[in-house]
Amino acid sequence: MPPFTTRRTIRSPILARTDGFAVETRGVTKEFAGFRAVNGVDLRLEAGRVHALVGPNGAGKTSLFNLLTGFLKPTSGEVLIFGRDATHLRADEIANLGVARSFQITSLFEQLSALEHVLLALQSATDLGLRFWSSEGALRRFVPRGRELLGEVGLEGAADRLASDLPYGQKRALELAIALAREPRLLLLDEPTSGMGLEDVGRTIALIRQVAGGRTVLLVEHNMGVVAEVAQRVVVMQQGRVIADGPYEAVRHDPAVIAAYLGQVDA
């Protein structure tokens, strides 16, 4: 046995099973000062399908999102992404496994234009980033693809506007363009249609369907119309636990789900 064999090199071959799941969590738990925001969640996302994560406010959806993308570390449990143990990876390392996410609270780079946002995302797939000696003209090669992506989300006219000047719905659309620019295998969207007008919601639904081809998608969504339209599987969370998991029609009639939502109305 060579002296430098580490725990990690022993563990990874054992865990390197995919079983057709893009994401698999095993008993993932996250505590904040004694409060269990996520409580023993076993989540499996099938590769190439669209999943919706729903549940009342405070159910732990966004915490779970952050656990999957490395922005939070679980108190216990494991996170596997494409069969790799991602429990202890940093956010940028998880991103580079082919994972892109949007953020619920739109937090863009205030002083960059819409196009610059997409260029930055396109640049991240190359080694240009650390070239402090290169001219920014090196970024010009990404402009055609950048404009194309903005066009796909209906932002062709807003390319040169500062992100901070965009109306809310367009910020959400820009979020989507940035995520798509990364050509992700796993796309995590946190409330992609919140704050959008009806027309934009329709466009976003079409876009999610279009980009879903071959990709695994998980979206947190409150709009049940959107969920019914795009999701092949629905995962319902309540108080940090998964209480139902299955096709939309089955989940909709699940007594536990009905109770959870009725309970929320009472509260």
């Binding site: 940028d92 953020f103 937090s107 930055l120």
Partner: peptide, 13 residues
Amino acid sequence: DNEARAQALGYPT
């Protein structure tokens, strides 16, 4: 402007 987002784009900040 936003370190978390830069990380989400895969940049080791």
